[in-house]
Simulated assay, not measured.
Amino acid sequence: MSDENPKSRRSAGAVRSEASHQAIIDAAKTLLSEKGYVGFSIDGVARLAGASKPTIYRWWANKAQLIAEVYEVESACAIHIPEDLEVSQRFL
Rank of each mutant, 00 (worst) to 15 (best):
G36R: 03
W59M: 07
V73H: 07
C77Y: 08
K35T: 03
A14E: 01
A19L: 11
Y71I: 01
A12L: 14
R47F: 10
G36T: 01
S88K: 14
I67L: 06
Q65C: 08
G44W: 01
R58M: 10
A51G: 10
G13H: 11
V45H: 03
G50R: 13
S11T: 15
A51H: 09
A76K: 12
S17D: 15
F40K: 01
S2W: 04
A46G: 09
Q65Y: 07
V87Q: 15
G44Y: 01
A12N: 14
A28P: 12
D3L: 12
A76W: 05
G44C: 04
G36Y: 02
L32T: 10
A23H: 03
N5Y: 02
A46W: 09
I79Q: 11
L66F: 05
R58Q: 07
S41M: 04
S52D: 09
E72K: 09
I79V: 14
V45P: 04
E72V: 04
S33A: 15
S41L: 04
H80I: 09
E74R: 11
V15C: 01
S2R: 11
P6K: 09
A46P: 10
G39A: 00
A76I: 05
Q65N: 09
I24E: 00
K53D: 02
L31W: 07
R47V: 11
P6A: 10
A27Y: 14
K35P: 01
I42N: 02
I24A: 08
S88H: 14
V70R: 01
L31Q: 15
I79A: 09
S8E: 12
H80G: 06
A27Q: 15
E86Q: 14
K35M: 01
A76V: 07
Y71K: 05
A61R: 14
V70A: 07
E69G: 03
G36L: 02
P6Y: 12
A61K: 15
